[in-house]
Simulated assay, not measured.
Amino acid sequence: MIMNDLADLAALMYRSGNRFHDSLCDGVEKTAKRVMLNAKKRLGHYQDGWKTLKDATVRAKLNKNQVAKKRAIKKGTFRATGTDADAPLVDEGHLRAAITINMDRYHIKAEIGSPLVYHATHEMGDEDRNIPERPHLRPALQEEVAQHLLQDLKDALSRGFR
């Protein structure tokens, strides 16, 4: 009798362990998606502490983006304004599109990033090439983890054990 009870208990714990693990993964993945979306929204908008683009950079960007170039011609300015009209880190949208999530459910971790080398250059800056740091992934991570991770984990665990 005791052996059956212990076997049943062990089976229950095993099944619960899988649900617990899967629920934690779901919570981490939900927060990771929030981080990714937050980081993508930050691109194209000046963030606190970001230096204004150089006029030469704005002119080069306008040569790549014909719609923005027409707006600049209409306004009569090809100069850096320090406003979203300069669209920092957005020329054609490649940087934004490259931000993805790699979810490792086995280790319960998510990596949010980009395979583009110049993404790291913009995030961290490059003093040798006089490229200022324009962090968008790190602030998004800090903000979303602080505001949502605990609740996302609680919600996922609650759903997992209903």
Rank of each mutant, 00 (worst) to 15 (best):
I2E: 06
I2Y: 00
I2M: 01
D5Y: 01
L6E: 01
D8A: 14
A10H: 08
L12M: 06
L12W: 05
M13F: 08
Y14T: 14
G17F: 01
H21W: 04
S23T: 02
S23Y: 00
C25G: 15
G27F: 00
E29F: 00
R34D: 09
V35S: 00
M36W: 01
A39Q: 03
R42T: 02
G44L: 07
G44A: 10
H45P: 03
Y46S: 04
Q47I: 02
G49E: 13
G49R: 04
D55Y: 01
T57C: 08
T57K: 05
L62A: 07
Q66F: 08
A68E: 13
A68F: 04
K70Y: 07
K70L: 14
K70C: 01
R71Q: 15
R71K: 15
A72M: 09
T77L: 02
A85I: 09
A85G: 06
P88G: 01
L89T: 04
L89K: 06
V90G: 03
E92Q: 13
G93R: 11
H94L: 12
L95W: 03
L95V: 09
I99N: 01
M103V: 06
D104F: 04
D104Y: 04
R105H: 11
I108G: 02
K109V: 08
E111M: 04
S114K: 05
H119F: 12
H119Y: 09
A120R: 11
H122P: 01
G125K: 10
E127V: 15
R129K: 15
R129V: 06
N130H: 14
E133D: 07
P135T: 10
H136Y: 13
H136C: 10
L137M: 13
R138Q: 11
P139L: 03
A140S: 13
A140P: 13
L141A: 08
L141E: 10
V145L: 13
V145T: 09
A146T: 11
Q147N: 15
L149N: 05
L149K: 05
L149G: 07
L150K: 14
Q151N: 11
Q151P: 02
L153D: 05
D155H: 11
D155R: 11
L157H: 06
L157F: 08
S158H: 11
R159M: 03
F161S: 10
R162K: 10
R162T: 11
